[in-house]
Protein backbone atom coordinates (compact mmCIF):
# COMPACT_ATOMS: atom_id res chain seq x y z
CA UNK A 1 0.00 0.00 0.00
CA UNK A 2 2.86 2.31 0.89
CA UNK A 3 4.48 1.58 -2.46
CA UNK A 4 1.28 2.58 -4.25
CA UNK A 5 1.15 5.86 -2.36
CA UNK A 6 4.80 6.49 -3.08
CA UNK A 7 4.28 5.81 -6.80
CA UNK A 8 1.24 8.10 -6.86
CA UNK A 9 3.26 10.91 -5.25
CA UNK A 10 6.15 10.38 -7.68
CA UNK A 11 3.74 10.42 -10.66
CA UNK A 12 2.15 13.61 -9.39
CA UNK A 13 5.55 15.27 -8.96
CA UNK A 14 6.58 14.26 -12.49
CA UNK A 15 3.32 15.67 -13.89
CA UNK A 16 3.75 18.98 -12.02
CA UNK A 17 7.38 19.21 -13.12
CA UNK A 18 6.49 18.53 -16.75
CA UNK A 19 3.79 21.23 -16.64
CA UNK A 20 6.13 23.83 -15.18
CA UNK A 21 8.77 23.26 -17.87
CA UNK A 22 6.28 23.41 -20.71
CA UNK A 23 7.95 25.58 -23.31
CA UNK A 24 5.76 28.12 -24.97
CA UNK A 25 5.17 27.08 -28.55
CA UNK A 26 4.49 30.70 -29.43
CA UNK A 27 8.20 31.39 -29.20
CA UNK A 28 8.93 28.76 -31.85
CA UNK A 29 6.47 30.14 -34.37
CA UNK A 30 7.38 32.43 -37.19
CA UNK A 31 5.46 35.66 -36.82
CA UNK A 32 5.61 37.85 -39.89
CA UNK A 33 5.05 41.55 -39.23
CA UNK A 34 5.24 43.37 -42.59
CA UNK A 35 7.60 46.28 -42.96
CA UNK A 36 5.85 49.65 -43.17
CA UNK A 37 7.77 50.62 -46.33
CA UNK A 38 7.77 47.26 -48.10
CA UNK A 39 5.14 44.80 -46.92
CA UNK A 40 6.97 41.94 -48.66
CA UNK A 41 9.73 42.19 -46.09
CA UNK A 42 9.36 41.58 -42.37
CA UNK A 43 9.77 44.66 -40.21
CA UNK A 44 12.95 44.90 -38.16
CA UNK A 45 11.95 43.71 -34.68
CA UNK A 46 13.64 42.56 -31.49
CA UNK A 47 10.98 40.19 -30.13
CA UNK A 48 12.24 36.81 -31.34
CA UNK A 49 9.68 36.48 -34.13
CA UNK A 50 11.83 33.93 -36.01
CA UNK A 51 11.60 35.91 -39.23
CA UNK A 52 14.07 37.27 -41.72
CA UNK A 53 14.02 38.86 -45.14
CA UNK A 54 16.20 40.54 -47.72
CA UNK A 55 16.05 41.74 -51.31
CA UNK A 56 18.26 40.05 -53.89
CA UNK A 57 18.23 42.53 -56.74
CA UNK A 58 14.46 42.65 -57.26
CA UNK A 59 13.60 39.29 -55.76
CA UNK A 60 12.95 38.46 -52.13
CA UNK A 61 14.73 36.02 -49.87
CA UNK A 62 12.26 35.31 -47.09
CA UNK A 63 11.49 33.16 -44.11
CA UNK A 64 9.09 30.30 -44.73
CA UNK A 65 6.65 28.85 -42.23
CA UNK A 66 7.71 25.30 -43.03
CA UNK A 67 11.51 25.67 -42.79
CA UNK A 68 13.48 26.33 -39.62
CA UNK A 69 14.79 29.79 -40.47
CA UNK A 70 18.02 29.92 -38.52
CA UNK A 71 20.65 27.59 -37.15
CA UNK A 72 23.92 28.58 -35.54
CA UNK A 73 26.93 26.30 -35.43
CA UNK A 74 30.10 27.05 -33.47
CA UNK A 75 33.10 25.02 -34.54
CA UNK A 76 36.83 25.58 -34.30
CA UNK A 77 36.67 29.24 -33.39
CA UNK A 78 34.15 30.12 -36.07
CA UNK A 79 30.45 30.78 -36.09
CA UNK A 80 28.34 29.53 -38.95
CA UNK A 81 25.16 31.63 -39.05
CA UNK A 82 22.62 30.06 -41.41
CA UNK A 83 19.50 31.64 -42.90
CA UNK A 84 17.17 29.14 -44.54
CA UNK A 85 14.07 30.13 -46.48
CA UNK A 86 12.71 30.68 -49.94
CA UNK A 87 13.65 32.94 -52.79
CA UNK A 88 10.50 34.47 -54.22
CA UNK A 89 9.92 36.19 -57.48
CA UNK A 90 6.87 38.34 -56.89
CA UNK A 91 6.29 38.88 -60.63
CA UNK A 92 6.26 35.24 -61.70
CA UNK A 93 5.19 33.95 -58.27
CA UNK A 94 7.91 31.34 -58.27
CA UNK A 95 9.47 30.01 -55.10
CA UNK A 96 12.66 28.07 -54.64
CA UNK A 97 14.46 27.05 -51.49
CA UNK A 98 17.57 29.03 -50.70
CA UNK A 99 20.08 29.02 -47.85
CA UNK A 100 22.71 31.57 -46.90
CA UNK A 101 25.69 30.72 -44.71
CA UNK A 102 27.76 33.39 -42.97
CA UNK A 103 31.08 32.22 -41.52
CA UNK A 104 33.12 34.44 -39.24
CA UNK A 105 35.61 33.94 -36.42
CA UNK A 106 34.33 34.53 -32.89
CA UNK A 107 35.23 33.85 -29.29
CA UNK A 108 34.28 30.58 -27.63
CA UNK A 109 30.56 29.76 -27.56
CA UNK A 110 29.67 26.46 -25.93
CA UNK A 111 26.04 27.11 -25.07
CA UNK A 112 23.22 29.11 -26.66
CA UNK A 113 23.46 31.69 -23.86
CA UNK A 114 27.02 32.49 -25.00
CA UNK A 115 25.73 34.15 -28.17
CA UNK A 116 24.74 37.14 -26.02
CA UNK A 117 28.33 38.11 -26.72
CA UNK A 118 27.21 38.93 -30.25
CA UNK A 119 25.29 41.96 -28.94
CA UNK A 120 26.26 45.08 -30.93
CA UNK A 121 28.87 43.22 -32.99
CA UNK A 122 29.49 44.36 -36.53
CA UNK A 123 31.23 41.93 -38.89
CA UNK A 124 32.89 43.06 -42.07
CA UNK A 125 32.37 40.10 -44.35
CA UNK A 126 35.45 40.99 -46.40
CA UNK A 127 37.71 40.42 -43.37
CA UNK A 128 40.08 37.50 -43.19
CA UNK A 129 38.44 34.17 -42.34
CA UNK A 130 34.96 35.46 -43.19
CA UNK A 131 33.01 33.99 -46.02
CA UNK A 132 29.47 33.78 -47.34
CA UNK A 133 28.02 30.76 -49.09
CA UNK A 134 24.74 30.23 -50.81
CA UNK A 135 22.84 27.15 -51.84
CA UNK A 136 19.70 26.92 -53.89
CA UNK A 137 17.38 24.07 -54.76
CA UNK A 138 19.07 23.25 -58.05
CA UNK A 139 22.67 23.99 -57.26
CA UNK A 140 25.32 22.97 -54.80
CA UNK A 141 26.68 25.26 -52.13
CA UNK A 142 28.62 28.04 -53.81
CA UNK A 143 31.19 30.30 -52.23
CA UNK A 144 30.26 33.91 -52.99
CA UNK A 145 32.83 36.23 -54.45
CA UNK A 146 32.08 39.28 -52.30
CA UNK A 147 32.62 42.85 -53.44
CA UNK A 148 31.55 44.22 -50.08
CA UNK A 149 29.39 43.08 -47.21
CA UNK A 150 28.43 43.53 -43.62
CA UNK A 151 26.40 41.74 -40.95
CA UNK A 152 25.46 43.64 -37.81
CA UNK A 153 24.13 41.86 -34.73
CA UNK A 154 22.29 44.81 -33.26
CA UNK A 155 20.71 43.05 -30.34
CA UNK A 156 21.44 39.83 -28.48
CA UNK A 157 19.47 39.51 -25.25
CA UNK A 158 18.67 36.67 -22.94
CA UNK A 159 14.92 36.07 -23.09
CA UNK A 160 13.19 35.02 -19.90
CA UNK A 161 9.70 33.52 -19.84
CA UNK A 162 8.14 33.88 -16.39
CA UNK A 163 11.58 34.73 -14.99
CA UNK A 164 13.14 31.53 -16.40
CA UNK A 165 15.82 31.71 -19.15
CA UNK A 166 14.26 30.37 -22.32
CA UNK A 167 16.36 31.48 -25.31
CA UNK A 168 18.44 34.32 -26.69
CA UNK A 169 16.80 36.87 -28.94
CA UNK A 170 19.17 37.69 -31.76
CA UNK A 171 18.30 40.53 -34.12
CA UNK A 172 20.25 42.40 -36.75
CA UNK A 173 20.80 43.51 -40.31
CA UNK A 174 22.95 42.49 -43.24
CA UNK A 175 23.76 43.47 -46.78
CA UNK A 176 26.40 42.46 -49.29
CA UNK A 177 27.30 42.46 -52.97
CA UNK A 178 28.86 39.60 -54.89
CA UNK A 179 29.86 38.57 -58.37
CA UNK A 180 28.29 35.64 -60.13
CA UNK A 181 30.29 33.25 -62.32
CA UNK A 182 29.73 35.49 -65.31
CA UNK A 183 31.12 38.49 -63.42
CA UNK A 184 27.67 39.98 -63.00
CA UNK A 185 27.23 41.86 -59.74
CA UNK A 186 24.28 40.95 -57.49
CA UNK A 187 23.12 43.11 -54.61
CA UNK A 188 21.61 41.73 -51.40
CA UNK A 189 20.10 44.59 -49.39
CA UNK A 190 17.62 45.49 -46.65
CA UNK A 191 18.51 42.22 -44.90
CA UNK A 192 17.05 41.91 -41.41
CA UNK A 193 16.51 39.05 -38.97
CA UNK A 194 14.95 38.42 -35.57
CA UNK A 195 15.33 34.96 -34.02
CA UNK A 196 14.85 33.19 -30.74
CA UNK A 197 17.84 30.86 -30.36
CA UNK A 198 18.02 28.02 -27.86
CA UNK A 199 19.74 24.65 -27.88
CA UNK A 200 17.39 23.44 -30.62
CA UNK A 201 18.96 25.95 -32.98
CA UNK A 202 22.46 26.33 -31.57
CA UNK A 203 25.12 23.64 -31.98
CA UNK A 204 28.66 23.55 -30.77
CA UNK A 205 31.30 20.86 -31.05
Amino acid sequence: MKIHKFLAVVTLCVLIASCSTDEPSQMDRTVFIPDYNDYNLPAYTEMGYNAFGAMIDREYFLVSGSIIPCKILYKEGKIMFMLDGTRKNSVYHTDSRMTLFFYFPFEQCSDYQDIIKLNDVNINLLSNDCRVEMSTENSEVQHLDLIKGNIYFKNAQLCLIDDVPNRVILSGEFDFQFLTGGELPVVVRYGRFDFGINNDYFFSY
Binding site: Q26, F32, P34, N40, Y49, L62
Partner: peptide
Protein backbone atom coordinates in the same frame (compact mmCIF):
# COMPACT_ATOMS: atom_id res chain seq x y z
CA UNK B 1 2.16 42.27 -25.99
CA UNK B 2 4.21 40.02 -28.19
CA UNK B 3 2.36 39.24 -31.40
CA UNK B 4 1.35 35.62 -31.50
CA UNK B 5 0.25 35.56 -35.11
CA UNK B 6 1.39 37.06 -38.35
CA UNK B 7 -0.43 39.95 -39.83
CA UNK B 8 -2.36 39.17 -42.98
CA UNK B 9 0.20 38.70 -45.68
CA UNK B 10 -1.41 38.66 -49.08
CA UNK B 11 1.30 37.18 -51.29
CA UNK B 12 2.49 34.35 -49.16
CA UNK B 13 -0.46 33.82 -46.86
CA UNK B 14 -0.26 30.04 -47.03
CA UNK B 15 3.06 29.99 -45.27
CA UNK B 16 2.01 32.05 -42.30
CA UNK B 17 -0.72 32.30 -39.79
Amino acid sequence: IRENRSYYYHNFGDDFY
